[in-house]
Design a protein around this nucleic acid. Sequence first.
DNA 1: AAACCACCTG
DNA 2: CAGGTGGTTT
Length: 601
Amino acid sequence: MNLSPSEHSMHKPSDGCMEDSKAEHLLPCYRRSTYDGPLASYHSGSIISHLLRKTLHNKLTSLDNNLLYLPSANTSGLDPESSRTEDFAQDDHSCTSFKDEDLSVNEHLQAKRARVENIIRGMAASPNGRSHREAESECEAVRCRRDLLKENKRKQRLPQHQEPSHSSTKTSKDEECHKLKEQLQSMQRLLHQLQEKISHVHEQNYSENEEREDVRSEHDQVKVETGGFSSDRAVKNLQETLKCELTRTVSESVDMVFRKLSMTLLNQSPQPCHSPEYSETEKRIPDDSPSELSDSDESIKASSAEHFESNSLEHQTEALSLVVRKPSLSQAVKRPYPLHQTPFQFGYSAPLHDSQILEHLLKYGPHSAFSALPCLPAALERSSPDSMEHPWESVGMRSKVSSGHLGQHQTGLVSVDTLCLPRVKMECGDLQSLAERSSFMTLNISFERLTPNHLKKAKLMFFYTRYPSSNLLKNFFPDVKFNRCITSQLIKWFSNFREFYYIQMEKFARQAIIDGVNDVKDILVTRESELFRALNMHYNKANDFQVPDRFLEVAEITLQEFYSAISLSRDSDPSWKKAIYKVICKLDSDVPEDFKSPSYL
DNA sequence: AAACCACCTG
DNA sequence: CAGGTGGTTT
């Protein structure tokens, strides 16, 4: 009978898998010993540049918006939605229109422009020089905003508030520039330290691995018997060390720059002009039922919330404190966008907890936080199957499409996305799980999209339940903000799991009949069975999960059911499988409580 | 009508 | 794995 161990199935059933996965588990970037490899280039510039540029961008946007929302405008009659979208449109349009009037800009603006550009270029310059062109076009966009801001400011405030004279501000501005540069340099130093630490830890890791490999070859048999679990644990411990070190240092650096830059910007820029009406309008935006939200709604909301959050100091601190407070409190306050998913909160007085920055990067991807492209077609923001598996891959397409269809000044913005993505992608998986494990959960932050880790978890849950109710799913994915879309996606996953499961069952049942199995009792499923191997490969590819015995029983019953049905030629009936499904759906067992932990994986 | 499902397809 | 479709149930 072929369902039990085949000869070659005994050849290290999980061994090959373990070898592969072990190698894969080591952060790819750590395998490089070259100092100036991707890791270096990523950490020494691009991600920080991203953060800094976004901060600048946000700052300018918020000032911009505040001016646009001054009471003088008849925004009071507009409903929140239209005023927000109009804001985007206007914002966007203003860029182009201003370019046309560029000749009217005086030298003062030119000088400021040059300084801002210098700062940003300094920040954007990455070691491999790839971002230079993008940085330049982005500078153009930033300049647009800033210039528009100045224009507006002049028009509206000229009578009562005179601009400081050119010469008097120049020195202080230059000082600030210097300060900024110094801060950035110390950032660079920190990052270099990080790189050294990481390569050091990596070397240790590498040598330990080699030692283990030696031991392994000596005791190959034993290792195979145990499935290599012990060595896998050790590798994971090392990974943890690496991750911790990485996060700590990056967080420190990022946090520091944020603090300093925000202070600098606060001093450098004119005080934001708060419009109570604007805030009220924003506050009154109905908290749409999540299930009703289309993806485009989400993206618009995200963008608007982003500038909303960065607009108001009061709301900043309130937001930050609310995140930490009990959920019930935060729910009591009507908000345009649930706090826990506010894309990028940035406070002046209370800097973000460093891990939140990392978390945001990992949760939403770099482009969500840094591109701020309300003008992008909503469809481009939509998560595709590919972007699910490879969250970063959608970016390439977006940029391509965007540059094809949108104006030049927008291409500059879009290119922000592409700056450091390849680097981020490398570390996405590991850092994401790290982020999930850390303050994401302690802060009660939830995902608004399913991640590869959720998929992994779902697959493992399939070992317990083939037909999970949507309630069960909600209970076991507490870190997911459920809406209709998420729910159906999860249900679809399990549907796909079942499909594969039943296809295998039918295949192996027919094979058993071909192989001349005469009695149902001869149909057995063990951990050595080919069938089990196929299933395990599908749902537990990393083989780091101990499949419950009950699953083997259920699989065996399923196989027997198929065998019987086919033997009795019931398969001539088009719906012959339904009877089997009815049996199997009753065999679900409880999913262990462990799975309820958001950080299960 | 909505939710859920299996099936088919890419 | 997701999209689409059609069937079934509530």
